[in-house]
Structure formats: structure tokens, C-alpha cells
Amino acid sequence: MSPETMSIFTPKVSARFDALVEKYPVRRSALVPMLLYAQDEIGYLSDAVIAEVAQRIGITELDVRNVATYYSMLRFKPAGKFNVQVCTNISCMLRGAYEVYEKFQEELGIGHKGVTADGVFSLEEVECIGACCWAPAIQVNYNFHDDLTPESVPGILAEYRGKAEGR
């Protein structure tokens, strides 16, 4: 992007994007990392995010959408401040992940890909978070919690609710 063009991203993320497109021999190779950084900053892949990323790489918005829809970790609507991902893959499932997931649903009052009314939490069932040895496990944003039981859910939620309230 030229300096006179307005960006929806912070200067830090814009600079990271510029570095990414220079790093790869084919600019398009920077697409997935750019989408992940964009999602971290904006919260989801809005139409404006898709448009700017497409322009920065020099591809169409449709090309960006085609790639982005392939990856389940990329979102097209806002998630909660704390996105709870409950792994239900085989190792976690065998050690009680569905019971843990059901407890999160009960406590939060939302289902898969839901967001609480106050916007603090979102919940999703995911395939694998790479913590099989410590199953069942969840990831809240980029923080792992493992060896869980349904009884551990209220405490985890209280911890993050406290963070949301500045405690």
C-alpha cells in the first residue's frame, strides 16, 4: 500500500504485512499469515479486512474469501473477547471432552460458534489443539487449559470474566 492510502490496521500490523509480502517469493504466500494477524487485530475477517488484504497482495477479494473459507480458525463474524475452543478430537473425547463442552454450553448459555450477549465469551467445538497428552483440553484465545473436568469449567470462566472486568 502506498503511504497516502488509509489502512484499517495499526501501523505495527501494516508494517508486519509489508514485511510478509517481501519475505515470500510469491506475494500470495503471505495470505494466510496476513489473515491471522488481521483477525487478531480486528477480531474477524470483515469485508474491509478482506478488501485491504486483497489489495496489499494484489489478488481479488474472491481469491481471499476462497482461501479464508477453507480454514476453520478464520472467522467472518465477531467472536467474544475470550474465544473458548473445546477440543473434541479422539484423545480429548475419550477423556471426557463432550462433558466439558456441554458444561461450557450450560454455563455460557450458547452453543457452537455462539457469542454471549455481553460479548465476553464465544464458544466453539474444534478438532484438535495439539494437547492430546493432557486431554481433555481447551484453548482460550492463545492460552491452554488441560486435564479438565466439567467441575473445572466455572472456575475457568470466572478467571476470564474477572479479566474482562479488570480484576
Rank of each mutant, 00 (worst) to 15 (best):
Y98P: 00
I90Q: 10
T116A: 07
S91C: 09
A97Q: 04
Y98C: 04
G119I: 07
E99D: 15
C92Q: 00
V115W: 00
Q85Y: 12
G96Y: 04
L108E: 01
Y101V: 01
L108G: 02
L108V: 08
Y98H: 13
M93H: 14
L108K: 04
V84L: 05
A117P: 00
N89A: 13
D118V: 06
L94Q: 15
V100R: 00
V100H: 00
N89Q: 11
M93P: 09
Q85V: 01
E102A: 14
D118T: 11
V86A: 09
C87Y: 07
Y98K: 10
M93L: 14
E106Q: 13
N89Y: 13
E102W: 08
V120I: 05
L94S: 15
E106N: 11
M93I: 11
K113L: 14
A117H: 01
G109K: 05
E102L: 06
E107V: 12
L94Y: 15
V115T: 03
A117M: 04
K103R: 09
S91A: 14
Y101F: 15
I90F: 12
Y98L: 14
F104M: 02
Y98N: 12
E102K: 06
D118F: 08
C92E: 02
T116Q: 10
V84F: 02
A117F: 04
H112V: 08
L94T: 15
N89T: 06
K113P: 06
H112M: 06
V115L: 07
V115Y: 06
I90H: 09
N89M: 11
G96A: 15
A97K: 01
G96V: 13
I90R: 12
F104A: 08
G119K: 08
K103E: 08
V100I: 01
G119A: 09
D118S: 11
M93S: 14
Q105N: 12
Y98Q: 07
V100L: 03
L108A: 03
V115P: 05
A117G: 06
T88M: 12
V120G: 00
K103C: 02
A117Y: 02
S91W: 01
Y101G: 13
G114C: 11
Y101A: 13
I110D: 00
L94E: 15
L94M: 15
Y98R: 11
D118L: 11
G119V: 06
E99L: 15
L108H: 08
Y98V: 08
G119T: 09
D118G: 06
E107F: 06
G109V: 10
V100E: 00
V115G: 01
V115S: 04
G119M: 10
D118A: 09
C92T: 05
G109R: 05
K113D: 14
C92R: 00
E107C: 13
